[in-house]
Amino acid sequence: MQTNPSTAVGAGTTFHVAQANYYYGSFLAVSNVNLDIPERKITAFIGPSGCGKSTVLRCFNRLNDLIPGAHVEGTIQYRGVDLYDKSVDATELRRRIGMVFQKPNPFPKSIYENIAFGARINGYKGDMDELVERSLRKAALWEEVKDKLKESGLSISGGQQQRLCIARAIAIEPEVLLMDEPCSALDPISTLRVEDLMHELKEQFTIVIVTHNMQQASRVSDMTAFYNAQATEKGGKQGYLVEYAPTQTIFNNPAQQATQDYVSGRFG
């Protein structure tokens, strides 16, 4: 019903990536990526550092546009629309594809303003107080901060800050949530809370998460993509997609030896 007939992508697919190469200037950072990311599932990207998993992630909301020289070849479609098509506006795209970053990055404003900001610039017409409360509740933070909404977003703990950033991202009612190692700066308890949250959020959003933590990938994700890196002649690292399959398969019965070595902790 909502699929562009010119593509062979099934309904139920949020991102369709085919033969994509990611460049920084003339440097090929990630090569030959082929992925179909399913709707309302959690897809995890794992792999050693430098393998380009964040690069692939950051192209889904075209955040890499901000880096001079970064560009992509190949097909990246979002619900059947080419992401890098001229008619697609990056600002509007980012409204629909939310993102949570590696380190909590709340704005130096009040907790309330942190959430209201995105809604305001995107012309939200509903009741702002209600939106703030709803978003904070969804991010399982409301009970902890409801009495200090006027305080700075930087005044709460790291784990709370990260949930504030999640609340901020879901306040603008995105369709997808990209998470770039969202727990790497958090303690184990905060990590657990964020993981629980992800399970709840996947009812509503497609989630793509980059993680260094294989236990986390196996705990939360439905699909897993394993990336690896090889050294180039010039001394840089070039990433490529090794294997993409349901998480069960990747961790128990992978097709590639490299995947087996990585998930069993033999390298990386």
């Binding site: 909301n61 600002t91 980012r94 970053f101 995105g118 610039i121 995107n122 901020r168 991202a169």
Partner: peptide, 22 residues
């Protein structure tokens, strides 16, 4: 920090909105 700018862009803010608001 660059991360604040990225946080703002990721919410669908334009460049000016990022500069003046964040």
């Amino acid at each position: 920090p660059q991360s604040l700018r990225q946080g703002s862009y990721a919410l669908g803010a334009t460049k000016r909105e990022t500069v003046t608001n964040v």
